[in-house]
Amino acid sequence: MMDAMGIFDMVLALALPWLGWRLLASPDLFRAMVLFISLGLLMALTWVRLQAPDVALAEAAIGAGLTGALFLSALRRLERLSEAERRLAFAGKREEEDEIPPERHRRAKPVAYGLALLLLAVFVLLLAWSLAQTPAGGGLGPAVGEQLGQSGVRSEVTAVLLNFRGYDTLLEVMVLFLAALGVWSLTRVRLPLQDEEPGPVLATLVRLLAPLMIMVAGYLVWIGGSRAGGAFQGGAVLAAAGVLLLLANVTVVRQIPAALLRWGLALGPLLFLLTAVVCVAAGGNLLEYPPQRAGAWILLIESASAVSIGVTLAALYAGGRPPEPPAQDRGGEQGPGRDADADAGGRQ
């Protein structure tokens, strides 16, 4: 039995880089992205094999699912762009500089390329050798085990994530918030995301699944205290529901006021931050929860974070700040996205 699992491990370990190679080598970007998603799913399987179920859940939902969706929507946006270009016959008028084919890059300086490749190979081999050489280090596993009783949760990963290293997670939630902020600062979203009508099947599917997904998200957050799951996994499922709603172009989603969305993005980070400060005010250190109620506090933070993570990831998928209501739009003035089009048009 062990041997069978060993072979399975070996195949899995070989399949990952092979898929990676294939996806980067494939000339078709769409195929590359599909391969990327399947690579993500294989990664999730690997995490299960390596006894990291929390990571597996997050990888399947965020690493494969959501990142893949982001890639695909970006690709579609680019393709739509080039189609529009062709239609308007801009292509013929483009400047010569823009027309340098990728081959010129490929062929440039084969010696330097070979040398760099050699260097990379040497370094990777060196790394591999040193990884094989290293004696097993200490690790913090035992320390986590000792203190687990005081953390307020039974799941080790959640204890590390929300208590022992809660400060990391606080900053990480900020990174997510920052990403949404960055995307919003760049451009404004153009709804609907799909050109065509969603169709009855998708609409029904969304109506069926969305409530269920919200329930599952709640379950994942709840179960995170004792087993695999938690704010990120729950948030990712919420985000998936959001993406489905966006794709199905449900009216409710389009009509969410921008202010509410802002609050949705900010809720998790704000609550986390306030909790940290309250801990200081109560006489402890930053993020030092009162020992008896640590579990409840963690659950509170996780629930708020999950909501915000869900909203944030869905907003990232939408890919821009919500369009302002027409009443506030001043005539003749445009956001950066529209400016950009004007810019591109003005060049030829």
Binding site: E196, G199, V201, L202, L205, L209, L212
Partner: peptide, 20 residues
């Protein structure tokens, strides 16, 4: 049940997109 729903719906969507 979920896999059934998901696979039939996604099958339908893929086929529809292909027809389009």
């Amino acid at each position: 049940l979920l896999v059934l729903i998901a696979s039939s719906a996604s099958c339908h969507l893929v086929a529809r997109a292909a027809l389009r």
